[in-house]
Write a protein that binds this DNA or RNA. Structure first.
Lengths: 108, 108
DNA sequence: ACAATCCATAACTGTTTGGTTATGGTTTTG
DNA sequence: CAAAACCATAACCAAACAGTTATGGATTGT
């Protein structure tokens, strides 16, 4: 029972180069493809394609300005992943609370 | 600057079938490979290999009992993903503080 | 003892993926 | 205007991936 767009987010962030690009955008703010290419350690076309994947997952937004394209992180697109963790986190908490109260009753 | 085992966790959870198996184990508790095969909608060898991937990411543990192998979720192995989101998705900080403290209580 | 069950691994296959180089469109610079 | 810079897409390639069927080892049931 996976949430609707969660899959794209999970897949996009599964690649370390893409995570690294997203991290860089989060830390340093808006960046051009050129700047990101200098950072990422792969070729410019590779960076462009990674950015396309991140864009389809809505993890980044872009803005054209003349011949350059500026990308910035869109952190609220992490919501599906957060929700997924939160969903199972709540479940664990319930189990943990039950276990905790059980232990309290057993050894007061 | 991603933690060493974070990559395995991200990769393991990138596949929807594997997420589904992990979700099932979290919801229903310990399960045999046979039971999971009935659930997952793929062949038994496929399930076994998914479980191996989840095991290497430490997201599940297994216990042999006679001819069957029982698997259960190991939710504290999600910690690297939670840490990552906490770091780069500061937007969601307060929601994560709850989850993180929960995980800390479960696996101190 | 024999048959059936449970599971993991091997062997194979088609698809996806992450990288490359090549190319071309658009915009800036000289 | 010509040249250079920026970026996206295309074409290609090797490796990884997720699935399958086949097989065999270990355990349980008859």
């Amino acid at each position: 029972m996976t949430l609707p767009h969660a899959n794209q987010v999970f897949r996009a962030l599964a690649d370390p180069t893409r995570r690294s690009i997203f991290e860089e955008l989060t830390r340093q703010g808006e960046q051009t493809v050129h700047a990101l290419t200098g950072y990422a350690g792969v070729s410019q076309p590779a960076v462009s394609r990674h950015l396309t994947v991140l864009r389809r997952a809505k993890l980044v937004r872009h803005r054209r300005e003349g011949r350059e394209t500026h990308y910035r992180a869109q952190p609220d697109a992490l919501a599906p992943m957060v929700d997924w963790l939160d969903l199972y986190g709540a479940f664990w908490r319930d189990r943990f609370d039950r276990l905790e109260s059980l232990l309290n009753r057993m050894a007061p």
